[in-house]
């Protein structure tokens, strides 16, 4: 916690929170209506053991949406950032492994139409989001539901 300067610009924290939240919400929302398509994507990456492919494809878009919504609202911000971090790290492993293999895949990160870019681009974007999640993990963000609830409980305590 003390690695970062005590006073980070509030706008940076706010923008980070909104960026990560919106990205997760978009990514999850695009995938969740059709688990079969996302399952194909997960299968094509050839990273997960077979029995985990369908459960992963069923669950992950909804975790993205849940964590994304929490981040946008600023509710349980640091925990949402931690959950997001777990997802982002697992994506990084899958992308990294396939980049190393030289696999010819499109990332399948957002929608079905291949707009997610190449694996390299996706890994870069993933790394950026990991940095954002780490930043959010260190402290609560301004203009959030967390702050509002905190203030209220403080008033009650007094």
């Amino acid at each position: 916690m003390s690695l970062l300067p005590k006073r980070l610009p509030l706008t940076l924290l706010l923008l980070s929170r909104l960026l990560l939240g919106a990205t997760l919400l978009w990514a999850g929302g695009a995938k969740l209506p059709e688990p079969a398509f996302f399952a194909q994507t997960v299968r094509a990456y050839e990273v997960l053991p077979l029995p985990l492919i369908h459960p992963f494809a069923i669950v992950v878009p909804w975790i993205e949406v849940t964590a994304g919504l929490c981040l946008l609202l600023g509710f349980w911000t640091r925990s949402s950032a931690l959950a997001a971090l777990l997802l982002l790290l697992s994506f990084a492993v899958a992308l990294g492994v396939n980049l190393h293999r030289g696999a010819d895949l499109s990332c399948g990160c957002f929608a079905l139409d291949g707009t997610g870019g190449s694996l390299g681009e996706a890994l870069l974007r993933d790394a950026l989001l990991i940095a954002v999640a780490l930043l959010l993990l260190t402290r609560s963000a301004p203009l959030s539901l967390d702050r509002l609830l905190d203030r209220r409980s403080q008033i009650e305590d007094a």
Partner: peptide, 21 residues
């Protein structure tokens, strides 16, 4: 919570897939 919603949606939706791969 996310996993629960995913499993529920998958069970209820016509686009659902089997849990067993």
């Amino acid at each position: 919570v996310g996993s629960g919603m995913g499993l529920a949606h998958n069970a209820l939706s016509s686009a659902g897939i089997p849990l067993r791969t």
